[in-house]
Design a protein around this nucleic acid. Structure first.
Lengths: 234, 234
DNA sequence: CGAACCCTTGATGGCGATCAAACGCCGTGG
DNA sequence: CCACGGCGTTTGATCGCCATCAAGGGTTCG
């Protein structure tokens, strides 16, 4: 990889605290690869050979079952993904594909597991990252189980807003159909949900969203009372 | 706790590999508490003061949002729960209540986090456990997103069967309405789903289930192709 | 023996999926 | 430069899965 990009990756919570020599050992053995849009990075069931770090672009994690597929997560740079499969040394449960042209750092799984054994700081951060991811999934599951689709969209917008430090203006990266799938609904119903949120303080102009009345939106969407304050540090 | 019970808890994957002295330190500072049925152990939003280990009985993890609630997991002995909240030192995302009379080992969270820092084997197992839990939640989420209710029930039965080493006869611990909520459906529809599975090799007699034709059931339920072989070691 | 309570079965209703068509955006090629 | 075609989004109509409402049967416990 280019030398200029190392610092940014080294700043990831996952790698920030670890021993510098060991970090360099990992990075030297890794390679940065460029991918065109719409390219499958790996499939479900493949052995997890690399921890992936999205350096640039946009990546979708998705799963398939009998003709249908659903997006599980949208990865933005700079962030690692499929850590759990690498740690457990088991096949991927999700497939990944690029949404836009992307560059991905590929860290050999075997090496990473080996280094983790000898670097407590790295292991500690791995543990933390997994725990946070676990909590994120708990939220996603409850979201799906006890909110209906328009409420899920409302909450999604509130979370995106919070990730930007409370910004009221959002721009969606990626197509709307993608977010529909992420939220567990069809593109048609996402469209209807957006217009339904007009009654609750949301203005939509294409990919640009304005949360005109955050109080009204929160009253409608009932966001989780508990929020992981450190979620946005990712 | 009674001395006779330590070995069983020490055998948990989480604690099995760690230093014995440190393990004893943890256990000595912990206490085993007995609870009657239907008692709330903790609520959502409470600070995670203890890692819980169910020694005996049955516990439900559930969440609530605006009048509705849904069960997230059913904990059977001997198993720990809410590890992620303890590791991240953040509020519980799920509440817990006993389903039957239960005994729970309460391990002070602060102490556990401290010991983890100094025992690599324990940290390693914590990491593994979180990673496995993560994968379990990924499965649960895809299950909900791309299977319909009767298929979810079918898969649930197949998984229960596998947990028992492929047994064809199952007995459900706990009430059916509980499993309905776990599977994201109503008791009424669970009942209908059970009878619908009659066409796919399943026989139901109260809480006793017989998977009369596993091949037919798998053909209908399309279980995940990837299975974590080490899942059953828990 | 009666009163809860759970499970079951049936009838109805609503949320969201599917089917269908029109609009707008954008890139290509004439 | 404009026409065309493809694709994503939007809007409308219909369908189906599942929730809700309702009632009856069985079991458990006081």
């Amino acid at each position: 990889m280019r030398e200029g990009e190392r610092p940014e990756i080294a700043k990831l919570p996952l790698f920030a605290e670890m021993d510098e020599d060991k970090r360099n050992r990992i990075f030297t053995a890794s390679f940065l690869q460029a991918f065109p849009p719409q390219l499958t990075l790996f499939e479900v069931g493949q052995h997890a050979d690399f921890l992936h770090v999205l350096v640039d672009g946009l990546v979708e994690l998705y799963t398939t079952n009998a003709e249908r597929d659903t997006t599980m997560a949208i990865i933005e740079p700079v962030h690692s993904f499929i850590l759990a499969a690498v740690i457990t040394d088991q096949p991927y449960l999700m497939a990944a594909r690029t949404l836009s042209a992307s560059r991905v750092l590929l860290i050999p799984a075997e090496l990473l597991r080996a280094v983790i054994q000898h670097d407590v700081a790295l292991m500690q951060e791995t543990m933390r990252e997994l725990a946070m991811g676990y909590r994120g999934l708990v939220r996603a599951l409850t979201d799906l189980k006890l909110r209906q689709s328009t409420e899920r969209l409302g909450n999604f917008l509130l979370l995106e807003s919070r990730k930007l430090g409370g910004a009221r203006r959002l721009r969606l990266r990626g197509e709307k159909r993608l977010f529909a799938s992420l939220l567990g609904m069809t593109p048609e119903n996402l469209s209807r949900a957006f217009s339904a949120l007009g009654k609750h303080g949301v203005i939509v102009e294409g990919a640009n969203i304005v949360i005109d009345n955050p109080v009204a939106l929160e009253a409608f969407a009932r966001p989780d009372p508990v929020d992981d304050s450190s979620l946005d540090q990712s």
